[in-house]
Design a protein around this nucleic acid. Structure first.
Lengths: 333, 333
DNA sequence: CAACACGCGGCAACCGATTGCCATTCGACC
DNA sequence: GGTCGAATGGCAATCGGTTGCCGCGTGTTG
């Protein structure tokens, strides 16, 4: 432990050349005589030399690392997203580091202070901090925002309005006239978008809509939402995400009601849990893996110097996955 | 984007002092005249100065960051672990960065090359690389291994043998005489430990045990395990983890068999899914949050210079959580 | 009044790489 | 034989901080 790693200086001394030559042997193929380079490489291998990316970053200002900030690692919806991001980064020869910010704007700031100088770009997935703070970050390093739009900044989002619209149409088609939205955290940008999309659909589809919450985006949050909903029950609910939807089902089951006979439930995200819970959950799916990959590629394009890249948000489609948690409503023909 | 951040040199010029004084104003309270320090701090705030931890690391060799390497982010068992690690790190004023290595020893190496110089210590959670490679890492930076024991290196593990023993006792008590173990990845250290613990229990408890697999530690892996198990069915199975157990249940359900009437199922990890699946899953729980926190504190102790810290593994208890997936077996009294 | 300690700021070296520029060597060409 | 240019290696500055050491000015003490 704490054994000093070998540097180009160690290698240079051992190989009888100048440090600059060692440096070039690795980063400037052809700039150094082939034999000399070969000898240097041998000595380096023998000594177990590994370049220190941080030291390199001092002068080159690039580290081959990008950071992805996540609001909540425990939220399973991020699992696939991270995979996509990691793969896209690896493909481009970058390492991806992740930071969990525990749904807190303060933690986001703290982590960024430490990590920002160490990376070439940042993906902010569902950031909780203010637009101003996000722009601040974007001034320092190439930044792409995920699941949120911040004016003027590149972002990758899911087509939430269309997803919600499909959910509403599905419920209306089943004969549900009243729908409750179980709201997630107010700091979560998609929450507002989804709620507005539901409200916008109400005229066309002849629905009345209500809203309970906000509750935390967890199973327990869903249980609390169930209690709130019970004060003015409706025959259908759409939850901010799958976790809330699952908690809600658990809550209403505990009240002796049944899903979907007494109440139809739709979630968002199509997490693995949506499939294994029973009744299995109808939910609005989004291509998370693709989302992560696109965000990373987008950042890397900026890192590569793209200046003119459009700042129009990249919008990825969502689709409704039908399962067993939705059924006919009171006005079913 | 790409706007050069302010440095101590900028601050020094603006405040009319030497860069070294700026540096000391921040890192050596008392070393600089209070008024001067105050003025420097004001100027710094005005210019939006933020210290570059990487540059600092060059001379101090500490970055206030630690890395946690995970075999698979998508595995929900890691969610709580990460939480515990993150909290313990934050408590000590450290930032935690995470890297997903996609169950690949190669990725572990690549990521470590990039990230190691940027952090003060490393937690290797369920590493897939060889003992030799792990020791190599430990020579460079303080390292703690999680869910695995590598001779001579500090580690934090769960008491798997006891957990498996409890599971076996539970099944034996219910009148199951034959138990199949659904094996996880061979590279996963706990897999061997759990299997051996089950075999060791067989004499005492009068069981016969079999083993199918290995299969990937996922729901799909479990479905495959179900097919393999069906060739020689037993009235009880213990899976390497919850995901496999859940996939297994899905698989046998699809064959028209019922859980627990036809086969009792026990998982490992007590992930959230174990609770919401139906039938709910009996599983061996471990204190993941504590596991993560302990590992981080352990690393930080080494970072702080502890040399004599014992390298005896820290062993955390596990316990059996009874749910609906286990029931009486054929020899039930 | 001399000797000394202490407070406080600056100088310069250093951490580990990269890179612009210069010096040397050597072969080629006129 | 002289000139020129390509190939190759070294010197030294630089990136953004940290820190050992020096020096100056002031206050304290004998």
């Amino acid at each position: 432990m704490a054994e000093r790693p070998t540097t180009i200086y160690d290698v240079a001394r051992a190989a009888g050349v100048a440090p600059s030559t060692v440096s070039r042997a690795f980063s400037r193929p052809g700039r150094v005589n082939a034999e000399t380079a070969e000898r240097i490489r041998e000595v380096a291998a023998e000594l177990g030399y590994r370049a220190n990316p941080q030291a390199r970053a001092l002068s080159t200002r690039t580290t081959s690392m990008i950071a992805v900030l996540l609001a909540d690692i425990a939220n399973p919806v991020f699992a696939e997203l991270v995979r996509g991001a990691e793969e896209a980064a690896a493909e481009a020869g970058y390492a991806m580091v992740l930071a969990d910010t525990r749904e807190s704007a303060g933690r986001e700031r703290e982590v960024l202070d430490k990590i920002l100088p160490a990376v070439d770009g940042v993906v902010l997935a569902s950031p909780r901090m203010s637009d101003t703070a996000v722009r601040q970050v974007a001034k320092v390093k190439p930044t792409v925002v995920l699941n949120r739009e911040v004016g003027g900044l590149p972002s990758v989002v899911v087509d939430n309005p269309r997803g919600m619209r499909r959910a509403a149409e599905h419920l209306a088609g089943l004969g549900h006239g009243h729908v409750t939205y179980l709201a997630g955290p107010e700091a979560a940008w998609p929450d507002g978008v989804r709620w507005r999309a539901l409200r916008d659909a109400r005229h066309d589809l002849g629905l009345t809509v209500r809203r309970v919450g906000p509750v935390p985006p967890t199973v327990n949050g869903g249980i609390r939402a169930a209690a709130a909903w019970a004060a003015h029950p409706t025959s259908a609910v759409v939850a901010y995400n799958d976790m809330i939807a699952i908690g809600f089902m658990r809550g209403v089951l505990a009240m002796g009601k049944r899903v979907p006979e007494d109440v139809s439930v739709i979630g968002f995200d199509n997490t693995q849990s949506a499939e294994i819970v029973s009744p299995s959950l109808t939910t609005v799916a989004s291509p998370q893996r693709e989302l992560g990959a696109r965000a990373v590629r987008h950042v890397l394009a900026f890192v590569g110097g793209a200046r003119s890249t459009s700042t129009e948000p990249v919008v990825l489609p969502s689709k409704l996955v039908l399962r067993a948690s939705t059924g006919p409503g009171p006005e079913h023909a």
